[in-house]
Computed example of a mutant assay.
Amino acid sequence: MSNANSNSARMKTIFRSKTAKALDRMEDPRETLDDSYDQQVKLLQQVRLAVAEVATAKKRIELQGEEMGARYQRLGSQAAEALAQGREDLARAALERRAMLEGQVAQLQKQFTSLQQQTAQLQERERRLTDQVAAFRIEKETIKATYTASEAQVRANEAVSGISNSITDVGSSLDRARDRVAQMQARAAATDELLASGALTDLTAAPDADIERQLAAVSAQAEIERQLQALKGADAPGAGGGSAQSGSGGWLGIGQGGA
């Protein structure tokens, strides 16, 4: 049972490792940062929209309060005028309406005060969020620039490493080529010696070329013996300057006969 658990844990570890590597290849941190920044900007826009909506509602209540305040003042004037004209009933009705209006104004004042507090809170949140978004944007661009520079450095290092490997491969290829050339030269020299000795048959040579080659070797040896005897005769007493004559013709006389 323990072996099964151990194998299962090991498989989970391998799976997590491979998954993490795959995610690293698929996920570009620059895109992730841009997405996060876009989300924060959207949240900031929502807060600003909420601030605008609350401000609009507060303005609407403020206008309504001003209208109710004007009516309140008008009812007071009407009550005084009615009482001056002896219409106490009208004055009482105006004062009753004014009293009712006071209750409505009181409720409106509470709403207005609440909206003022909400507006102040939202404006403070908007200010803080604006600062956070601005700071995040600067940090985001810094991280992106650093990542891009590091990525370029990695590519440059990989390129240099690839060049080094290529140079190493080229050096190995040159060494192998030199060995092959040396082997081929040695083989060519060996086959030349074998052809010269007759051990190999030169299929491109003329018929009886081997006999001609041997006769030429005998003639060359005989010519050497003749020249040797001529030199010995020239060194004998009474011999007349044969060596001097042999050199009188210069280099054009070499090999043209005579000692």
Rank of each mutant, 00 (worst) to 15 (best):
S6Y: 01
S8P: 02
R10N: 11
E27W: 14
D38V: 00
Q39K: 06
K42F: 05
Q46K: 02
Q46N: 04
V47A: 04
A50N: 08
I61R: 06
L63M: 01
E67G: 03
A70V: 08
Y72F: 13
Q73G: 15
A80V: 12
G86A: 13
E88D: 15
L90E: 12
R92E: 15
A93L: 14
E96W: 07
A99G: 06
Q104R: 11
Q104D: 11
Q118A: 05
Q123C: 03
R128H: 11
Q132H: 14
K140P: 06
E141N: 09
E141I: 05
T146K: 14
V154M: 06
N157A: 02
S161I: 01
T168C: 01
D169M: 03
R176M: 08
A189K: 10
D208T: 14
D210H: 07
D210N: 09
Q214Y: 13
A217M: 11
A217H: 14
S219V: 09
I224M: 03
R226K: 10
L228T: 13
L231D: 09
A234D: 10
D235M: 12
A236P: 04
G238V: 05
G238E: 03
G240Q: 01
Q245L: 00
S246Q: 03
G247H: 05
S248L: 04
S248F: 00
G250C: 01
L252Q: 02
